[in-house]
Simulated scan of single mutants.
Amino acid sequence: MTERLNEGKVAIVTGAGGGIGRELAVALAQSGAKVLINDIGVSLQGAGGSATPAEETLGLIQQGGGEGAINTDSVSEWDGAQRIVASALDAFGRLDIVINNAGILRDAIFHKMSADDWLSVINVHLNGSFFVSRAAAEHFRAQQSGAFVHMTSTSGLIGNFGQANYSAAKLGIVALSKSIALDMQRYNVRSNCIAPFAWSRMTDSIPAETPEQKARVEKLQRMTPEKNAPLAVYLASDAAREVNGQVFAARHNELFLMSQSRPLRSVHSDVGWTPEHIAGHGMPALRGSFMGLDRSPDVFAWDPI
Results as ranks from 00 to 15, higher is better:
189 V>Y: 04
221 Q>F: 05
222 R>D: 08
190 R>D: 05
221 Q>H: 06
204 D>V: 11
198 A>W: 00
216 R>I: 08
221 Q>S: 07
203 T>C: 12
187 Y>F: 15
209 E>T: 15
204 D>W: 15
207 P>V: 11
213 Q>R: 02
227 K>M: 05
191 S>E: 09
202 M>F: 12
216 R>N: 07
184 M>H: 14
186 R>N: 00
213 Q>D: 03
177 S>K: 10
205 S>Q: 15
219 K>Y: 05
180 I>R: 02
203 T>H: 11
180 I>F: 14
227 K>H: 12
177 S>Y: 09
187 Y>H: 14
209 E>L: 14
230 P>Y: 00
191 S>G: 08
181 A>W: 11
229 A>V: 01
222 R>E: 13
223 M>S: 12
202 M>E: 09
216 R>H: 06
225 P>K: 04
177 S>R: 09
177 S>E: 07
229 A>Y: 01
212 E>P: 01
199 W>Y: 06
213 Q>V: 03
181 A>S: 14
229 A>K: 01
207 P>G: 11
187 Y>N: 13
220 L>S: 08
218 E>L: 12
212 E>D: 07
230 P>C: 00
194 I>W: 04
208 A>C: 13
201 R>S: 14
180 I>H: 06
194 I>R: 05
222 R>A: 12
227 K>L: 05
224 T>I: 11
219 K>C: 07
205 S>K: 14
200 S>H: 01
231 L>R: 00
177 S>C: 12
214 K>L: 04
203 T>N: 12
211 P>D: 01
218 E>F: 07
229 A>R: 00
208 A>T: 13
226 E>F: 05
197 F>A: 11
221 Q>G: 05
196 P>R: 10
227 K>G: 00
190 R>M: 07
178 K>T: 08
177 S>Q: 09
193 C>P: 04
225 P>M: 04
228 N>A: 05
231 L>P: 00
219 K>T: 10
216 R>C: 04
208 A>D: 15
189 V>Q: 03
214 K>R: 13
187 Y>A: 13
215 A>G: 02
214 K>D: 05
189 V>F: 05
226 E>H: 13
208 A>F: 13
181 A>F: 10
194 I>M: 07
179 S>L: 12
212 E>K: 05
198 A>D: 02
223 M>Q: 14
207 P>R: 08
187 Y>V: 02
211 P>L: 02
195 A>D: 08
218 E>P: 04
185 Q>F: 11
230 P>V: 00
180 I>V: 14
207 P>D: 10
225 P>I: 03
228 N>M: 03
204 D>N: 15
199 W>R: 01
218 E>M: 10
185 Q>H: 14
223 M>G: 05
179 S>K: 12
202 M>P: 05
217 V>C: 10
210 T>K: 06
204 D>C: 14
228 N>I: 00
220 L>I: 10
179 S>F: 04
191 S>N: 06
221 Q>C: 07
